[in-house]
Every structure is written in structure tokens, then in C-alpha cells.
């Protein structure tokens, strides 16, 4: 187990190194001179040279990378070209909203998905099964922005229960969470169904049934408890995708999270902010995936560590 953890940790470090190189290179991959991209083509020679020196762009590429990664390790992801604010501060100011949104969506997605998947498995090949799978397939196929617009139209315009957009506490996160949660529930329902179908076929389930165990205890106590292991992994992996998926939802609902920050930064070509955000989200995604892996291997001792 320790060897496995060390190996996973080492792989994670290499991946992070690769991610940091890619993110660092972003500014150099943009066609044209990065300084001219910032200052515009009518900038004076002096302004160009000053900015080059300020950004360290007159140094060799590897030196620029070392300074980038050195600063990043100290929590300095640079300053926004537009607001001059530190990117880390901007991210930290906005991250709580995205984090809450991801957590609420995950709860909605997990509850709805597990219930739908369990019903589909227990009632396999019935109308309930087909209906649950159809709903989950629609959840996977529907664009997030479309679900969001539909919910706004019904629950903010026609029945003015929720705010149309903007952030004003928990209340304004309900519709966005449902939007993201529905998309997540589709995948979870499909995984729960297939995992539950495997479990239902096991001998111990037949034994419990023969011994006259109550149906609810049989399904939720004996069945679901064992079927949930791979589902929990999926739920964990969805978290990272929810952070990225929040880009669309936050834009539709005008929520000031890191997703909408990314879109604002692209619109203004604010590269330090984009680089900082991409680095931050990838870091969280990698760490969450590692944690899910570790929890999975701890929960299910059948997994072999290769």
C-alpha cells in the first residue's frame, strides 16, 4: 500500500510538472509577440522594453520557467493585466462560490443518480428501468446552458421563486446547482444501475432474500452498500469536472465564481489570470483524483496495487 501511494504521488508530481510547463508555455504559444499582444501594435520601443524587463521576457526561456514555477510554489501566480490585482487573491475571492456550487451539485447529482440507478436495477427491464435510463441519458445529452435557461424561464420568470442571476447567498445557488446536478446525475445513475445489477446476482443477496430479509434492508443494506464503491469513485471524479462545468453555469447565472472569471479573462486576453486559473483548476483536479484513488483502494481491498 505504501509503495502504491508513493508511486501515485510520484506520478502526480510528474503530471503537475507537465501541467506547469504547458501553462507556462501558453503565453509563448500565442501567435505574435506577447508584449505587443498586451500593449497593442502602436506601443513605443521604450514601453515594450520596460514591459519585457518587468515580465522577465528578456531572459532565456528556462530561466523564465524557473521564475514562474518558483513564484507559483510561493503562491504567487502573477498580477492581472487588467485589474493589477494578484491572481491568487482574485481566485481565492471567487473560489468559495464555485466550490459551494460544485458541492451542492454533487449532492443533488449523487442523490438523484443513486435513487434512479437503484430503481432501474431493482426493476430491471421494466418501464421504470427504461424511464430512469432515458431520463439519465437526457441528463447526459442536454447542454448545461439549455437546462439553465429552461430553469430560469420556469422558476425565475414564470414562477418568480428564485433570482434570475447574480449572487446573494445560498438561495441564488439553488437553480445553478440543480442545473449542474442534473447533468451529473445521469452518469451516476448509469454507473449505479450496472454496479447494482452485478451485486444483485451475488449469492449473499439470494441467501439474504431466502432468509426473509426485509426488501428495503435487502436493497439498501445489503445491495446498495456494496454497489456504491465504484459509484463513490465516479462521484469523486465528477467533482473536478463540476469545477470546469461551472464555467457555463456561472456564465448563465452571472455568478462571480472562478468559471466566470475565466471567461472574463479570455474576453480581455488577461493571460496571467487565465494561466493562474488553469493551473489552479488542474491542480485541484489532480489532487482530487489522487484522493479518490487512495480512498477507493482503502475501501476496496480487492484492488491490486501494480
Amino acid at each position: 500500500m505504501t509503495r502504491y501511494l508513493l508511486k501515485r504521488f510520484f506520478t502526480m508530481l510528474i503530471t503537475l510538472l507537465g501541467v506547469s510547463i504547458l501553462v507556462f508555455l501558453m503565453i509563448h504559444l500565442i501567435p505574435g509577440d506577447p508584449v505587443l499582444n498586451i500593449l497593442g501594435e502602436f506601443a513605443t520601443e521604450e514601453a515594450i522594453n520596460n514591459l519585457k524587463a518587468e515580465l522577465g521576457l528578456n531572459q532565456p526561456l528556462y530561466m523564465q520557467y524557473f521564475s514562474f514555477i518558483g513564484n507559483a510554489l510561493q503562491g504567487d501566480l502573477g498580477q492581472s493585466y487588467i485589474t493589477n490585482l494578484y491572481v491568487v487573491d482574485e481566485i481565492m475571492n471567487r473560489f468559495p462560490i464555485t466550490f459551494q456550487l460544485a458541492v451542492y451539485s454533487l449532492i443533488i447529482g449523487a442523490v438523484v443518480g443513486i435513487i434512479m440507478g437503484t430503481i432501474a436495477a431493482v426493476k430491471q427491464n421494466t418501464i421504470f428501468d427504461q424511464l430512469a435510463m432515458m431520463v439519465s441519458l437526457i441528463g447526459i445529452s442536454a447542454p448545461g446552458f439549455w437546462i439553465a435557461l429552461f430553469l430560469i424561464f420556469v422558476f425565475a420568470y414564470q414562477l418568480p421563486i428564485f433570482p434570475i442571476s447574480g449572487y446573494d447567498g445560498f438561495y441564488s445557488l439553488i437553480l445553478p446547482s440543480i442545473t449542474l446536478g442534473l447533468a451529473t446525475s445521469g452518469n451516476i445513475a448509469r454507473m449505479t444501475r450496472s454496479s447494482m445489477l452485478e451485486v444483485i446476482k451475488q449469492d449473499y443477496m439470494r441467501t439474504a432474500e431466502a432468509k426473509g430479509v426485509n426488501v428495503f434492508r435487502l436493497i439498501f443494506g445489503h445491495g446498495l452498500q456494496n454497489a456504491l464503491i465504484p459509484v463513490i469513485t465516479l462521484i469523486g471524479l465528477q467533482f473536478g469536472h463540476l469545477l470546469a462545468g461551472a464555467v457555463v453555469t456561472e456564465t448563465v447565472f452571472a455568478l462571480p465564481g472562478i468559471g466566470s472569471l475565466a471567461i472574463e479573462a479570455i474576453a480581455t486576453r488577461d493571460m496571467p489570470t487565465i494561466q493562474g486559473l488553469v493551473m489552479f483548476m488542474a491542480f485541484i483536479f489532480i489532487v482530487v483524483n489522487l484522493l479518490v484513488d487512495i480512498i477507493y483502494s482503502a475501501v476496496d481491498p480487492r484492488i491490486k496495487y501494480e
Binding site: 501541467v19 501558453m26 486576453r269 483548476m281
Partner: peptide, 25 residues
């Protein structure tokens, strides 16, 4: 595979957004 792991380290929509940030809209 290491290169693929690095690409997979980005949620897919985020990767697409990052690429557009470089290539342009």
C-alpha cells in the same frame, strides 16, 4: 502515456478553454 496523463489532468472543457485562450476565439 505521460503526455496523455498531463492532458487528462485538465477537465476537458477547461482544456478546450485554455487552448482557445492561446489560439483565439
Amino acid at each position: 502515456m505521460q503526455c496523455m496523463d498531463i492532458l487528462l489532468a485538465f477537465p476537458s472543457l477547461l482544456l478546450a478553454i485554455a487552448i482557445i485562450a492561446v489560439l483565439g476565439v
